[in-house]
């Protein structure tokens, strides 16, 4: 295995949980799968479609997202929205994320040692 592959694997692992957090925050405004994908990627939160669509389904099953079919346009689209429990989870995850970020920063500057 070359170094790039190793790096890529670790980066992927680091990002895995953040995609959930990003979805929960972003979907406080309802949107459909492809639009969500585009907006996350344009923000630099890189996520694969084959990861995102199953993830949306799973989050809905867990009651963290609610969904509604929008048939106003030519093609029906499923709009997802963060549910109240999803919102709570987003807050908890975001807090944890910041805590880890702080801790890493302190480790890096040497304050904690």
């Amino acid at each position: 295995m070359n170094t790039d592959e190793t790096t890529l694997g670790h980066i992927q692992e680091l990002r895995r949980g953040t995609v959930v957090l990003a979805c929960l925050i972003r979907l406080r405004t309802p949107d459909y799968g492809y639009a969500l994908l585009e907006s996350l990627n344009s923000l630099g939160i890189l996520v694969d479609a084959n990861t995102l669509y199953p993830l949306l389904r799973r989050l809905e099953k867990q009651g963290l997202l609610t969904s509604e079919w929008n048939t106003d346009e030519a093609r029906p689209r499923k709009f997802y929205r963060t549910s109240p429990s999803g919102d709570q989870l987003a807050t908890a995850l975001a807090t944890d994320w910041r805590r880890i970020d702080d801790a890493l920063a302190r480790l890096d500057t040497g304050d904690a040692r």
């Binding site: 459909y32 799968g33 492809y34 479609a49 669509y53 389904r57 093609r75 029906p76 499923k78």
Partner: peptide, 14 residues
């Protein structure tokens, strides 16, 4: 099936 059609449609559009 419905979800998949939506996804395929969006990718085709892109």
């Amino acid at each position: 099936g419905r979800e998949l059609r939506e996804r395929i449609g969006d990718v085709i559009d892109a």
